[in-house]
Design a protein around this nucleic acid. Structure first.
Length: 309
DNA sequence: AATATTCACAACCGCAAGTCA
DNA sequence: ATGACTTGCGGTTGTGAATAT
């Protein structure tokens, strides 16, 4: 490739950095800033290309790096972010202060991927592996948006990236939604072990998900005070925001997503959903876009989905 | 003890997008 | 408009340590 030619034309060092090189680079950037990376090696007295210096600084020498092992919370967040963002490591890293994209990518490839596979989850789609195998032959671009399929899972929606959400809104629902503001908040079917998910793409909010204690009876749970009834299914908002471990989360197969435009709308919707929804499935939620979307489009799909169980 | 394998981490490579003359 | 150059990203490879055989 053409641009990054310095490393090849000149006899520049490659491979691991020595402590001496680190010190030179650190001193230079501490006193002068990096400015144009291509001029850094010359000014710092290094036999490296600018690109290599940049990488070394970003991934290792930067003073704000956290280093050390990832916490369980960080791992969980990475999995959840990956489900929405895919391999957009830099965007994932932006949500984890002190962590680099390279570090997260390495963790994913060497550790998390394996853990997910051991739990029967396909790390690419975040779906159960058996399901991924079944679905391999056909996947049209909008298949993942359909809730009418009985094989829909939580990961169907995590699989959809924010940009896809906004495309879907813009083209199918006639709404103008900024992809960076698309979010989901949790909704729970009361007839099974199913949850939705909270996700905020524009700020680091740890998803909070709660589950019914088990698949069957959950009488002691502080249940939401409304539910949406169909012939054989009821849908409740879940506002019992207890943290959920990923290991538990991956075992919960179904979600109902609701989209909101902003953090403010999100909070408004959560509080509005705490109120009785309505007597009728046709009555709108009393909040803006999310309610409209949910009532006009997602609710009927959810009903269809619920009935197909 | 020697060798092979696995693992975690660091660094490299190729590409695309952006900037600037 | 064009090409040289920089920057940033994501996939891949290299390397040394730890572990298994």
């Amino acid at each position: 490739m053409g641009r990054h030619s310095g490393c090849y034309k000149q006899k520049l060092r490659k491979g691991l950095w020595s402590p001496d090189e680190d010190e030179k680079l650190l001193n230079h950037i501490t006193h002068h800033g990096h400015g144009c990376w291509s001029s850094v090696p010359k000014h710092a007295g290094l036999q490296r290309c600018g690109k290599s210096c940049r990488l070394r600084w970003i991934n290792y020498l930067r003073p704000d790096l956290k280093r050390g092992a990832f916490s369980q919370d960080e791992e969980n967040l990475i999995v959840e972010l990956h489900a929405v963002l895919g391999n957009r490591w830099s965007q994932i890293a932006a949500k984890l202060p002190g962590r680099t994209d390279n570090e997260i990518k390495n963790l994913w490839n060497s550790n998390i991927k394996k853990k997910l596979k051991q739990r029967g989850i396909d790390p690419n789609t975040h779906k159960p592996i058996s399901e991924v195998d079944r679905e391999k032959p056909t996947t049209s671009s909008n298949d993942h948006m359909s809730l009418s399929s009985s094989s829909a899972t939580n990961q169907d929606f995590f699989h959809v990236r924010p940009s896809d959400f906004s495309d879907y809104f813009n083209s199918n629902l006639g709404l103008s939604v900024d992809s960076s503001l698309c979010s989901m908040f949790p909704v729970q079917f009361s007839t099974g072990n199913m949850v939705g998910s909270v996700f905020q793409t524009h700020s680091c909010v740890k998803p909070s998900i709660s589950l019914p204690p088990d698949n069957s009876s959950s009488t002691d749970q502080a249940a939401p005070n409304w539910e949406f009834q169909t012939n054989n299914t009821s849908i409740r908002p879940n506002h019992n925001f207890e943290d959920l471990k990923w290991s538990e989360y991956v075992n919960t197969p179904i979600s109902l997503p609701v989209f909101v435009k902003s953090e403010a709308d999100y909070l408004a919707n959560v509080s509005s959903l705490a109120d009785p929804w309505s007597q009728s499935q046709n009555e709108s939620l009393n909040t803006p876009e999310a309610s409209d979307v949910f009532c006009k489009d997602l609710q009927p799909m959810a009903v269809s989905f619920g009935q197909s169980l």
